[in-house]
Amino acid sequence: MHSSLTRRGVARAASALALAGLAAASLAACSGSAAAGGTSSIPKASAQVATSAAAFGGMKGLVAAAEAEGHLNVITLPPSWANYGKIIAGFEKKYPGITITSQTPNGSSADEVAAIKSQGSGSNAPDVVDIGTAVLDANTDLFTPYKVASWNDIPTADKDPNGLWYYDYTGLMSIGYDSSKVAAPTKLDDLLGSGYKGKVAIKGDPTQANEAASAVYLAAVQDGGSADDIQPGIDFFGKLKKAGNFISVLPTQATVNSGQTPVVIQWSFNNVAWGAAGGSSGNPNWKTVILPGTAIGSYYNQSISKTAPHPAAARLWEEYLYSPEVQNLYLAAGAYPAELAAMQKAGTVDTATLKSVGEPPSNLVQLTADQAGKAADLLKSGWSKAVG
């Protein structure tokens, strides 16, 4: 359990982010000799408790074991989220013998946990999760330790000392808006105005989804609250609902393009991806605003299911995510990777991308695990009363 560790993080996205394109690069690991669906040299029971690649005899053995399994199940990873479309494609290109099944792409952290609990070790059960802190903290018994080869490049406070979880990336809470439909908000209270009636959405239920909860945290710190007191954030959404401006619609690229959700409070990397940076699928009128004053960030966590049906592939996936190539792909989406400081020191960060995204800010608030837990309790008791 990691409730006592401080949740440090860095995040920033400018409203005029010009994100550099970054091609998915291959992971520098030896390819194994086992064919997909073949026989691994390590029993599944051993793979499920392996805490490093050394348990497979090194990376070559891990690759062979993963290719023998032939499959990997991921969950709640939309292609536009933190560059996961390119990341998944890069993994399958590097390891063509492993097929990725991406489940419930628009789901929440709670959906990840529910899938593991309901499916256990079934063939369709999630192997790995990309999960918010509060939900992870309440379900640590579902996960198993593993330390990637670049373990020392992840800051000490950003990982469980035994390898049960580790930060992957963070964004910054931002307001995305369709500039052809609404005026640019310059402060939180602008969203209470008549010009935003029936137009403001967040990414799901704050009692279930970390991104939605973080929108409430942003409202709290922008409206007299703090990480220790998110009640002002709940109260703000109550006022937003009373004004007729808050809508209970799950926003997606499609709802943005159709005009159903002209204003969305969500992570900076998602708002940026839904605009011009999204290419032909994006909305050229979609802009991103980072409100002045206190900012909210929140690292997501990687962890491996204790009952993963493809335990070797799950571990190979983590090795892939924490390679410089994929950490740079996170960065290219405007999501600051956990290994950024180490990559800057080693010279492996994509400097052009970092320049376009900007250096991480110093005025970032990130809830500790204890604060997130208390905030979750308050949301459970007060959210439906405020917006119901």
Rank of each mutant, 00 (worst) to 15 (best):
L250H: 10
E325G: 13
A16V: 00
V387G: 05
S15A: 04
V74W: 04
D158K: 10
L379G: 01
L340V: 08
A89M: 05
Y330W: 12
S121W: 05
P324A: 07
I98C: 10
A149H: 12
S109E: 02
A157C: 06
Y299V: 04
A308L: 11
T156A: 15
A110R: 14
I304T: 15
S298T: 06
I202L: 08
T133D: 07
A209S: 15
A68S: 13
D160G: 11
F143D: 08
L136N: 06
E67L: 05
I265K: 02
A227H: 02
G388A: 14
A24Y: 03
P232V: 03
P337F: 07
S281H: 12
A18L: 00
I42M: 15
G193S: 15
V365N: 03
G38E: 07
P206V: 07
P105K: 07
G297M: 04
D228Y: 04
L62P: 03
E112N: 12
G297P: 01
V10L: 11
E69N: 06
E67F: 04
F237M: 07
G120T: 11
L316E: 13
A35W: 00
Q119I: 06
S356R: 06
L27S: 12
Y146N: 11
S31M: 06
L172V: 13
E67Y: 01
G193N: 15
R8W: 09
A376W: 10
S384H: 13
Y300G: 08
D130R: 11
V63G: 04
L240M: 11
P79I: 10
G120H: 10
V148E: 11
S214P: 00
N301P: 00
H71N: 13
A64P: 03
D223Q: 08
I247L: 09
F269A: 05
E92A: 12
F237H: 01
D168A: 07
K306C: 11
A213H: 03
T288G: 03
G171R: 01
A308F: 13
G297D: 04
K159C: 09
P324W: 08
P161D: 08
A375K: 01
A68F: 09
T140C: 06
A29P: 00
R8H: 11
V200M: 08
I230M: 01
G21A: 08
A18M: 00
N328P: 02
Q266R: 09
N245M: 14
D111H: 10
A273K: 07
K385G: 15
S226Y: 02
A335Q: 06
L378S: 13
E318F: 04
S305E: 11
P337E: 08
A375C: 08
I154G: 04
D127L: 12
I175M: 03
A28Q: 14
A352V: 06
Q119T: 10
V264D: 08
N285D: 15
K374C: 00
W317R: 07
A34C: 08
V216K: 02
S121D: 14
I247A: 05
G193R: 14
P78M: 14
K159G: 03
Q327M: 12
S3W: 04
A13H: 00
G373E: 09
N285F: 05
W81N: 12
S108N: 03
Y330D: 04
W383E: 02
T170E: 13
A36Y: 10
I175Q: 02
K93L: 06
L19R: 11
V63H: 12
S384P: 01
Q208L: 14
G9M: 11
K287D: 07
T368R: 01
M1L: 02
F236E: 00
A338P: 01
A277V: 07
L331G: 05
A13W: 00
K345P: 00
